[in-house]
Design a protein around this nucleic acid. Structure first.
Length: 688
DNA sequence: TCGGTGGC
């Protein structure tokens, strides 16, 4: 399906700093192209995709500006109008003197144009313009010589432009600050360039790298000074002991872009936390008078006293939180909040949103009204939001569902776009996995604004072991397994391969519909990771199949869609079954929301889903869940992960592995203990 | 070691 095309860029249809949709002579292409201008001749390689609204498009995976290498091409290029001061006559003359490789000759040799009569003082300007056109390639080539990969080199060029190679040579660590390469690869480049291991560049970069890593990988908004210093020393001295404590302390004290001394954060992260705190206080200050509510807010359903209290709180407070585990009726309460609000404010604008596409769709399904991702609601793309402090949302009630998934960045963007007069309600389960991005927003806000906790469980039977054990796990206690019941089972297996086999057997042999039973593994890799488990389960399959990338898909296979696709109406995390495979490339998948067809490279959005990661399953529910629990997942063994996995099940949980691994997981609550300043900043927020 | 959303 991939194709390579050389054509001229006629027009940009859409353009951001790095991404563009553009028209070549006969086609529309889209991708990350930087340094490309209208009129450029481009060689693009990519794959075709069919866009329902805009038709056939080429998704660009690789591109370059070829230097013309025939007399005709060189003359065409020089006279194309791109190079000012060169018309057809002069172009002919240049090519007749310098030959088919005229362009590269001029680029390489500043004096070569002297050979052509009648150019005179135009020569340097012509060369400058040519260089500008081919600058991308030249800079990228130089960066590659310095040891960057093509991709990183492109990104570095996008960031720094012409002087990129110079910057990198002087301070290879500038690449780590932009998150283009890791500290260790920058270290390699620096070593080859002869930089001292205790140079200020290196030490500063090391400290910033530690802060950045802890922020993006572990979710910390700051690190205690001692921890930052000891982590920095470990990083900087991992090969040879060359950096002393004194040096690190000295560089830390003059480091720009960080905040605080006892608790050190990246300055922007601190600013975000402070801004969130200000916005929370701004919104929480608002109080609303609420007339008594009718008893039957939702036809035929009577709310519990707790749920009623939650409705009242949400309506009275400028900012409130509704939290609780699965099955406690959060959704029902949200429906009641909307209903009550609309009864009392018939002209009020109600906006519903969630951090992920699927959560938004589900919210929309259960409330029977529009819901958006936060990104869509704010028009948030490439770090720019259409809705912001200056142009706030026109809403009177804003509900954010699955708020535990909202990170520092998203929350800051959302809150600053909420007007003073609006009420905002966060809904979520604070015991689930923390957000992908930095921060611990929902947990930090609990009880800092009016908070209602729902605990009474409806969905599962009250005596369900799933429920009681989920609570135990939350408290750091081992689940209790009552062998007289069948809804919470532990199958003891020691060896990872045995665990994998046992999991695979259970997955296919329980008599459930494939969509009702789900294997959840903490990791993708490893003997009990999702990749291996999927292969194991797929091993027994026969019949029509299609290969795409690293995966094989069969008719009957369970698959997961991995990127929101609004045109197909299918979202990241949707799980379905392959019904049909035609012609080795057309695939038909049955989701609960309907049939979706994939052709060609659409398949890049599909993965096998007999086993998925616990993270991916967040926000989904199944009748039965099978969870491998082994010390080979050591780094991933923690309380919220097991809690999240177990609470995905409505009827049955099967744990397969060792009690030892389970005990480790239940005891470990470190991942959710993120260093954040937000709750401290809110200490004096109004609560009632 | 895991995970998010966008663009005509």
């Amino acid at each position: 399906m991939t194709e390579t095309i050389t054509d001229t860029v006629n027009r940009f249809i859409f353009k951001t700093e790095t991404f563009a949709i553009f028209k070549l002579d006969n086609i529309v292409a889209l991708g990350d192209v930087a340094g490309v201008r209208e009129g450029d001749r481009l060689t693009v390689t990519g794959s075709w995709q069919e866009h329902p609204k805009y038709g056939r498009q080429l998704r660009v995976e690789h591109w370059e500006k070829p230097v013309p290498s025939t007399e005709e091409a060189a003359a065409d290029f020089l006279s194309s109008g791109l190079i000012k001061g060169v018309g057809p006559v002069l172009a002919e003359r240049i090519v007749s003197v310098l030959g088919p490789n005229a362009v590269s000759a001029i680029l390489e040799d500043p004096d070569v144009l002297k050979k052509v009569k009648g150019i005179g003082k135009k020569a340097p300007e012509i060369r400058r313009q040519l260089q500008e056109t081919y600058q991308v390639q030249q800079v990228v080539a130089e960066l590659i010589r310095l040891g960057l990969t093509l991709k990183t080199a492109m990104k570095a060029y996008m960031k720094f432009g012409r002087p990129a190679a110079e910057y990198v040579r002087r301070n290879p660590y500038c690449l780590t600050e932009l998150d283009l390469i890791g500290f260790h690869r920058a270290d390699d480049i620096a070593r080859r360039a002869g930089l001292a291991p205790d140079s200020s560049f290196r030490v500063k970069a090391g400290i910033l790298y530690v802060l950045n890593e802890s922020l993006w990988d572990e979710g910390h908004a700051y690190l205690p000074r001692d921890e930052l210093i000891s982590r920095s020393l470990t990083l900087l001295n991992h090969v040879e002991k060359s950096v002393s404590l004194d040096i690190v302390e000295k560089e830390l004290s003059r480091l720009k872009g960080v905040h605080g001394s006892a608790e050190v954060s990246l300055a922007w992260a601190r600013e975000y936390e402070e801004e969130i705190a200000r916005d929370v206080k701004r919104l929480a200050r608002q109080r609303f008078d609420v007339p008594p509510l009718p008893r039957d807010l939702i036809r035929g359903i009577e709310l519990t006293p707790d749920q009623n209290a939650a409705v009242k709180t949400a309506l009275e407070s400028g900012f409130s939180i509704l939290t609780g585990g699965p099955g406690v009726g959060k959704t029902q309460t949200v429906r009641a909040v909307i209903r009550a609000f609309e009864l009392q404010n018939p002209w009020g604008g109600v906006f519903l949103c969630a951090p992920t596409g699927r959560a938004a769709r589900r919210l929309s399904e259960v409330t029977g009204r529009q819901a958006h991702t936060v990104h869509k609601l704010l028009g948030l793309r490439n770090g720019h939001a259409d809705r912001n402090r200056k142009n706030p949302l026109e809403c009177d009630l804003l509900i954010l569902d699955e708020a535990s998934m909202a990170c520092l960045v998203l929350t800051k963007r959302l809150l600053e776009a909420v007007p003073n007069n609006a009420r905002i309600l966060f809904v979520g389960d604070a015991d689930q996995l923390p957000s992908v991005g930095p921060g611990n927003i929902l947990r930090d806000l609990l009880d800092k604004v009016p908070t209602v906790r729902l605990t009474e469980i409806f969905r599962q039977a009250a005596e369900s072991q799933i429920v009681t054990n989920a609570h135990r796990i939350n408290r750091g206690q081992m689940p209790l397994i009552d062998r007289s019941k069948t809804d919470f089972i532990f199958l003891e297996r020691e060896d990872p391969e045995d665990i994998a086999k046992c999991v695979a057997t259970c997955a296919s042999g329980m008599g459930y519909d494939p969509l009702d039973v789900q294997v959840l593994s903490p990791m993708r890799k490893g003997p009990v990771g999702t990749a291996e488990l999927n292969k194991l389960i797929q091993g027994g399959m026969s019949g029509p199949r299609v290969k795409y990338g690293q995966y094989v898909f069969h008719v009957g296979d369970k698959v997961i869609h991995t990127k929101n696709n609004y045109d197909k109406g299918v979202f990241n995390g949707d799980i379905g079954i392959i019904k049909k495979i035609k012609m080795q490339h057309d695939v038909l998948v049955q989701y609960s929301s309907g049939l979706v067809s994939y052709s060609g490279d659409d398949l890049r959005e599909l993965e096998p889903a007999w086993a998925v990661t616990v993270h991916k399953a967040q926000g989904s529910e199944f009748k039965a869940v099978i969870i491998p629990v082994t010390t080979s997942h050591y780094v991933m063994l923690h309380r919220n992960l097991i809690y999240t996995a177990v609470t995905r099940a409505r009827e049955k949980v099967i744990l397969v592995g060792t009690k030892k691994a389970l005990a480790i997981a239940v005891r470990n609550n470190k991942p959710i203990q993120r260093y954040t300043a937000l709750s401290g900043l809110l200490r004096d927020a109004p609560r009632r």
